[in-house]
């Protein structure tokens, strides 16, 4: 059984369903990349797993436990961390305070978590007392990912972690994502930069109109001419 098992999920915002029966698996240490056109339901699927979007049908199991529609604030204690695409740091809090917020549910682990995050993102060390709102986009993304890693989650979900970043930062983020997965953490990622993301994906999931279109190892999806033409811009 996979660490995360999403089966036939139907749901969306208010009356309008965006997901029409989506399946998704993610195993420990695996990088899973979700791609698809705008409005395909990529972010909504992630928010449904995070407990931020209600699902009307289907099931979500994490480590064998049903978590569908559980309150969002309980997810971090289950080992499931989520980094939204925008507004993913507390702008008026310092880098250190943002990271401390990541360990809010278990303050005793804050010191160890901070040491781990600073080892993963050494750039943050000298900016630790700077308000997160004053950081560059790339540094902010590091803070957001670092915050999510504070309590050693078993699954981390990243919604477009490289959106708006320079190629240098994109490469850095992808490289760190691989390092995180090597530690045995499952990484679930939505990416507009589909090609470089699929290149490192153990599993690529193509969504279209709220339904699964294709699932295969990332490089296999990249090699598929039809997927390339329809979803990856030729």
């Amino acid at each position: 059984m996979a660490l995360l098992e999403v089966r036939g999920v139907v749901g969306g915002y208010g009356e309008a369903d965006i997901l029409h029966g989506v399946d998704l698996d993610a195993d420990a240490g695996e990088i899973v990349v979700i791609v698809g056109a705008n409005g395909a339901g990529k972010s909504t699927l992630m928010k449904a797993v995070a407990g931020l979007v209600r699902i009307r049908a289907g099931s979500i199991a994490f480590a064998g436990e049903a978590i569908a529609n559980a309150p969002a604030e309980t997810m971090i204690l289950r080992g499931l961390a989520y980094v939204p695409q925008e507004r993913n740091v507390f702008p008026s809090l310092t880098v250190e305070e943002n990271l401390a917020m990541g360990a809010y549910a278990r303050p005793a682990q804050a010191a160890a978590g901070m040491a781990r995050v600073f080892a993963l993102f050494p750039d943050l060390v000298q900016r630790r007392r700077v308000a997160a709102g004053q950081l560059s986009g790339g540094q902010r993304q590091m803070v957001a990912i670092g915050r999510a890693l504070m309590l050693e989650p078993r699954l981390i979900m990243l919604d477009e972690p490289t959106a708006g970043l320079s190629p240098k930062f994109c490469a850095l983020i992808f490289e760190r994502v691989q390092a995180i997965a090597r530690e045995g953490v499952a990484v679930l990622m939505v990416e507009q930069n589909a090609r470089p993301a699929l290149a490192i994906a153990d599993r690529g999931v193509v969504l279209a109109m709220g339904r699964n279109r294709a699932t295969a190892p990332g490089p296999a999806l990249l090699a598929d001419p039809e997927i390339g033409r329809l979803f990856l811009g030729g």
Partner: peptide, 24 residues
């Protein structure tokens, strides 16, 4: 204090505070 930091975090972004496990 941890509680005070959570108050400032809520003021910054209540949804993000929930995701980080803050008891709103």
């Amino acid at each position: 204090s941890r509680a005070g930091r959570a108050m400032r975090a809520m003021a910054d972004d209540p949804d993000l505070a929930r995701i980080t496990g803050v008891d709103v």
